[in-house]
């Protein structure tokens, strides 16, 4: 889990001028995956730590990513039984609303608390891209567990 979160952080910190703000949030996708698959290990403390590291790397106000991530993790844990009943595409259709709501909350709270308005409206497209990317993300993150499941029994 830690390795995948660090890799997601590195992905989010890649300079991407062609999709500066509206690109998918790899860290949020990875936190969502682990909140669904390993809720006992994906607490709000870990979410806060990872989000603050992302804010520092991006030069953003500390805590703004955490605000969105906390409620994504909350939603994923709350509705994990229902979401996991679907395949990756069905999951994406559920999760896109969660991501959109969390990002909207982040924008609203930052506007109310800090007074900053959003300057890059393309950011609001990020949940859509995340939903499109979710099946691939889910398959990649699940792959080591599938690999372990098919390992010969004599290997520990």
């Amino acid at each position: 889990m830690i390795v995948t979160l660090l890799a997601a952080l590195a992905l989010d910190l890649i300079p991407r001028p062609w999709m500066a703000v509206w690109g998918p949030e790899a860290t949020l996708l990875t936190l969502t995956f682990w909140a669904l698959r390993a809720p006992a290990w994906t607490g709000f403390g870990l979410t806060l730590l990872v989000s603050i590291a992302l804010d520092v790397g991006r030069g953003a106000v500390l805590g703004q990513t955490a605000l969105a991530a906390i409620w994504v993790v909350w939603g994923a844990q709350k509705w994990r039984s229902r979401v996991l009943w679907f395949g990756p595409l069905g999951q994406a259709a559920h999760l896109v609303w969660l991501w959109a709501g969390a990002l909207a909350l982040q924008v609203a709270v930052r506007w109310l608390v800090v007074g900053d308005g959003i300057v890059a409206y393309g950011y609001l497209l990020a949940p859509l891209w995340m939903a499109l990317l979710w099946p691939l993300w889910y398959a990649v993150l699940l792959w080591p567990q599938r690999w372990r499941a098919v390992m010969p029994k004599h290997r520990v």
């Binding site: 001028p17 500066a20 991006r58 030069g59 953003a60 308005g117």
Partner: peptide, 8 residues
């Protein structure tokens, strides 16, 4: 890099 922060 350009900051991907949508607020700045």
């Amino acid at each position: 890099y350009d900051s991907p922060d949508p607020f700045s």
